[in-house]
Nucleic acid binder design. Structure first.
Lengths: 210, 210
DNA sequence: TAAAAATAACCTGATTTGGGGGAGTAGTAT
DNA sequence: ATACTACTCCCCCAAATCAGGTTATTTTTA
């Protein structure tokens, strides 16, 4: 018998075997209840709002609309629910798009059953469950390139430029002359081999100089 | 007896009781070896390079130079080592500065001994260990504000502006007229109640509209 | 079918940008 | 002692960009 306090879980996963595996796993774990399981976003869209899940397990490689593109729509249907991504892919772009689109966690499919259960629990407790390798990629995204050709001051100024500030304003805020800022920018352009703000910002970001 | 394969761990932590606790914990775990433990960065600086640790446990609240400011210097002394942050603080700014300065993981001090050991193991295996709440904050940093006043197109254009591109270039890349881009920007400024690129970018980023 | 969003036009003046040159001072490393 | 790097400041120029005002049409979506 499921109690009122059970964590309500929905699953969207096209592979029937895997989907039924999750249903079985979660349905037979005390404290958890499966309130819906669907093979595609289109199928889920009609009913998921009334399912009122606390947590949604979402496969990213779905037939029709992909899981990542479905994310914002699902967020609107069930704004209060936490969404955990399940995938075999570990591509940077997918991960960051998923997190940017509202996912609260990102698990690879080789995650053990116990870990999936604890991830559901963890996200309900305010955590952000991620597979180890995913977590490393996320952390790496914050890291700077040690081997930047830019000096401290140049890096600082390029960062300011990247916020959209004018050279004049940057000069004022750094208490240096406008001409000094211009000099630094010239040097930055030379070092990065670019001829515009936009290109400098792009090159610097691509190489994690800023 | 420690074997050659043991994971070499260093500890920098000013509280002697806590430090000795870690030394004891790690030293008595098979497969791990403590090769150095110091109460401050200054003490560690002299000897840590010869300790040649695989993993460094670093307290952020250190006497003298703080752990976060010490990070880049430690990175230079032991470039191959993974650095795990240990702290009682869960402030966004500290976390992101630490990760940006080269930390490979971020653990709160209430982390259980077993988890600390598994975090050391995990980081050696290419993972990025984080406490649950930290992980959530990191994930949240990727999230957008659902309640943005900006339309899709406006958001898209403001994102382009934030990369430093000129209006003309944005128009070309989006296959729309320069005048259209200008119109969108005017609307963006009105909605955000700003009068410049820099302010629009700042307001939008602060509120996670972009 | 209304309302909201996206598109486009015309005008103006102030500001910014990118690129060219040169030059002094402090600190560091060799 | 010297060479190097980083940081600072100065002059010049033409072209491009920016911010703000007003109006109007066509899609799209609720």
């Amino acid at each position: 018998m499921s109690r009122d306090l059970d964590i309500r879980v929905c699953i969207i996963e096209d592979d029937e075997t895997i989907r039924e595996g999750y249903v079985y796993l979660i349905g037979n774990t005390p404290g958890y209840k499966v309130v819906g399981s669907y093979p595609s976003f289109e199928d889920a869209a009609k009913k998921i709002a009334t399912d009122d899940p606390d947590v949604l397990l979402l496969d990213v490689e779905l037939p029709g609309i992909s899981g990542i593109d479905a994310l914002p729509k699902l967020k609107k249907l069930i704004p209060e629910a936490y969404i955990l991504i399940l995938t075999v892919y570990e591509q940077d772009i997918l991960i960051f798009r998923a997190l940017g689109n509202g996912a609260s966690g990102y698990l690879t499919k080789n995650t053990s059953p116990e870990k999936i259960i604890s991830a559901i629990h963890e996200v309900m407790e305010g955590g952000g469950p991620m597979s180890a390798h995913i977590a490393r990629m996320v952390i790496s995204s914050f890291q700077r390139n040690e081997a930047s050709p830019l000096t401290r001051r140049e890096t600082e100024i390029l960062e300011q430029i990247a916020t959209g500030k004018s050279r004049k304003r940057i000069a004022q805020e750094l208490f240096i002359d406008l001409e000094t800022v211009k000099s630094h920018i010239k040097n930055i352009y030379h070092k990065l081999n670019v001829h515009s703000k936009a290109d400098a910002i792009k090159t610097a970001k691509d190489n994690k100089f800023i």
